[in-house]
Design a protein around this nucleic acid. Sequence first.
DNA 1: AAATCGGGGTC
DNA 2: GACCCAGATTT
Length: 347
Amino acid sequence: MNFSRTLTFWYSEHKRDMPWRNTKNPYNIWLSEIILQQTQITQGQPYYDAFVNKYPTVFDLANAQESEVLKLWQGLGYYSRARNLHASAKHVANELNGIFPNTYKDLLNLKGVGDYTASAIASICFNEPTAVVDGNVYRVLSRYFGIDTPINSTKGIKEFKTLATSLIDHQNPSDYNQAIMEFGAIQCKPRNPNCNACPLNESCVALQKNIIDQLPVKLKKTKISTKYFNFIVMLSTDKKTIFQKRTHKGIWQNLYQFPLMESEKKLKIADFKKHPFIVSYFEDTPFEFSLYNNIDIVHKLSHQHLHTKFWIVEIDQLPQKGIPIADLKRYPTSILISNFIDEFFDA
DNA sequence: AAATCGGGGTC
DNA sequence: GACCCAGATTT
């Protein structure tokens, strides 16, 4: 049996049951693929269920407010996915009469849909033989064929896409694509793959050369930077606080947060009241303050570490319009802020 | 070509 | 700590 047939047979025997495997509806498949980008099944599945439940059709999603979509997305990360999801839903609902594009080429025009996702939807929903290349596929192909081209290099991206395209089963592109991904996820795993029980172990180049643990090759990522975040949690006598939207580009765009001052170094408690940001914010209004956490909370993102302090400011009247503290949890926010709210206000 | 964009899980 | 995850987009 050849490579592709072996994989699809293996898939028929081993595939896990998942909610998006019981449908070919492009809306559902699209939703699942966006949610699962750079996200493990176990983390994404509850979000998929929640979205299908709250927004059963693309029209329901299109009619929602963006902040509502972001709230449901809260905790999943890579929030541009949620913003693009909502924008594309509006486009499909309003410009395309609710009908999803049905080719790889046209699917690519949707915001948030790149090569992988367009290939996945086109193959799963419309039987187009477009090969998916995700992290699983890179691993399976690099090992089986013994390819050491870095998977995140321009050359590697082209090379693996071409190879995957040459391997796809034209009789059943949907099952083949899902088979190779499922195979990578539970058989040809990143660490300790089960080569003894592998249906491809007799022809796997990496196994023969004993270089399974050296593949795939990946260029090393850029180094992590450190930033210092100081959030100002205001508490007025009428139980309000200031919670504002991050409108600028960057992390957490369009999510909400307490007023933030970034500092180059750790801000000390003696310096807090004299900080220019604080001086301009409160002018001559008297207030008392305290530091919630003496030890920085280090929030780790993939490319930066945020050393965070929460400053509690008790004040008679807010320096600007605020929101009731009781309403804080209605707003979409980061895990960093969400955790603080849970600890500080619910304890 | 490299950087940006999250959060959770594993070893 | 390093690496990974059904990647896309911007710089």
